[in-house]
Design a protein around this nucleic acid. Structure first.
Lengths: 153, 153
DNA sequence: TTTACTGCAAAGTCTTTGCAGCAAG
DNA sequence: CTTGCTGCAAAGACTTTGCAGTAAA
């Protein structure tokens, strides 16, 4: 994962200007391993910048993605962004369906996959979805609460 | 893969009416292993039905997906559909980036993946992208043609 | 000072929905 | 003949773009 400063350095290194808004963006993605939608980002930023416009958020997300400091992934629920992984070592991700945080998987199935000569492989995708420790715990508490609530009626 | 007739039977079994348009849709997905976008489907259908409207195509794709005869997958380029695989045996796919046809992979990396107890796995995705035999051949021919064209100048 | 960034408004793409006439069963 | 299907038009969600004022370097 790139740090907040690494993101900002990459941006200013490309002649981009470091505005307050971009600092907040860099911090958001530098300190968070989860995937965020444009709306998530807008809402996070909105707290700090009252007159914030959606299009600027989109513009900055796109710029950062093109620069390579953000990764864009398409999920069923739509497009989401997260800070780029350092490309040092190839790896895959476990993704929490609740908080959208990611955890690395240092195993690549591609080596073990039997691909016929007939098919020229270009890329692959391996993603594991589930619930991380924290979210699982919250879920259990909610279920317990709901069950308790029912009893009360 | 479901056959054209299996698709139609599933639909009429649910009380859906078998219109001409739906017959064509069933045939399209029954005879084709590739992923198709709503636009692809619209264009295929448009040849036969001049007054075809986009919204009916969307409506039918959605109905068929909810019924389970179609599978919907989100790619970078957008949402695409294909006929459902028979759910008999779990498998993954190799997908041709050119023609979007799919080829089964009877290997599932999930068994070999080391998932910590911390993380409760719910689902996973493993997809291999590349070029199938036919498309690879066409590509090579195009490259050869292009090179030949250059020589001529 | 210069050039890039921002917010506003508007447009563009893809998808869904309400309605009235039409057709499958 | 009854209920669901279709095309039309319109709206909705998400994303992009042109413009003029503002601010970073």
């Amino acid at each position: 994962m790139l740090s907040t400063d690494q993101i900002l350095e990459a941006m200013s290194g490309q002649g981009l200007r470091i505005t307050d808004q971009r600092k907040t963006l860099a911090k958001l993605f530098g300190e968070n391993t989860g995937y965020l939608s444009a709306k998530d980002v807008y809402e996070h930023m909105g707290r700090k910048y009252s007159g914030l416009s959606f299009d600027t958020v989109y513009r900055n997300l796109r710029i950062m993605e093109e620069l390579g400091v953000l990764e864009q992934v398409v999920f069923e629920e739509g497009v989401k962004f997260k800070g780029s992984c350092n490309q040092d070592h190839h790896h895959h991700h476990m993704i929490c369906l609740q908080c959208m945080k990611t955890y690395p998987i240092n195993f690549c199935p591609m080596n073990l996959t039997d691909t016929p000569d007939q098919f020229r492989v270009v890329k692959h995708k391996f993603e594991v979805f589930g619930y991380c420790k924290d979210c699982e715990q919250n879920r259990e508490e909610e279920i317990a609460l709901a069950a308790h609530g029912k009893e009360g009626r």
